[in-house]
Design a protein around this nucleic acid. Structure first.
Lengths: 151, 151
DNA sequence: TCGATAATATCAGTGGCCTGATATAATATA
DNA sequence: TATATTATATCAGGCCACTGATATTATCGA
């Protein structure tokens, strides 16, 4: 108990959770800044990139793939639709599903965004040196897995 | 150029930026869920913990320490004040500053929250094994630094 | 077949992050 | 001293994340 408290009271910069938040926030801010030039936010890019790989997904399926709630994905899709970057239409068979597909404008924005995101990824990989990017990546995925299986 | 695109098109799970987002989001969701029992969100805990170490900080100073904008910190403080967890008052000398201090209720919530956060930190450290937590932590801080110095 | 269950979409409200803009107090400088 | 600059606080609006609640469609089982 008291050892747990001691852990918290230490230099916050040596806390894994704090460092994780700092790194993610910095990357997100960097990406948002760069992506602004093509009129996208980071979550919007993420959804568009997903739709490029598998067109016609439902809101629920997109939410599952992004690990967010359907309500959250709903809001993102509404914004993308307002910006004419995606098109939503009734599913040909299943009456409760509305599918989403990229528009030409969406595809165009995505092309420019891919460059930006790839550059940020390279910056990130360079930054972890001398650690191996694969090692860091695996450790991060284990954190995500551990948190998900908890509670 | 084409090699950059290839990097993006790969399995997203092997992208450092994606893994970073997944890990941080999972930790944040876990913490928010646990902290709900004491009526706090993760950012709220973070601010209260900061005030415990240095009472009477200004909104601007709190924002700088949390790496968020003054407007964001303003909103967090407004919520905390509404919940009677902090008290804001005019600075004794500097007329444009409003200082913030913990209330008794704030201190009480913080005590319970410290346990929860320390437990999550331990879970995280366990999850990165067999990697060394210090190695991962340092790599994350280098990412944050690299993104900040960019642009 | 009918009723229960599950899946999907969506509305409403909250919190935390941002940008942009404005008002005021403190400080530096001409 | 008077003006310009800087620091602080705060309002307004937007996006993304959540919970809670509701309506509709599919599906499963008695």
């Amino acid at each position: 108990m008291s050892s747990l408290h001691a852990l918290t009271a230490n230099d916050p910069y040596r806390m894994l959770g704090y460092a994780l938040k700092l790194a993610q926030q910095a990357l997100r801010t960097h990406l948002d800044t760069e992506l602004r030039a093509v009129g996208l936010t980071t979550p919007q890019y993420s959804v568009l990139a997903g739709l490029e790989l598998s067109a016609g997904l439902s809101n629920a399926e997109l939410a599952r793939r992004a690990f967010v709630t359907p309500q959250t994905m709903q809001a993102i899709l509404a914004t993308l639709e307002r910006a004419s970057l995606v098109e939503r239409m009734a599913h040909p068979v299943n009456g409760r599903i509305r599918t989403t597909e990229l528009t030409a404008a969406g595809r165009s924005a995505l092309r420019a965004a891919h460059e930006i995101v790839a550059n940020a990824e390279q910056l990130t990989r360079d930054a972890v040196a001398p650690s191996d990017p694969e090692t860091i990546c695996s450790a991060l995925l284990r954190i995500a897995e551990a948190m998900r299986s908890e509670v």
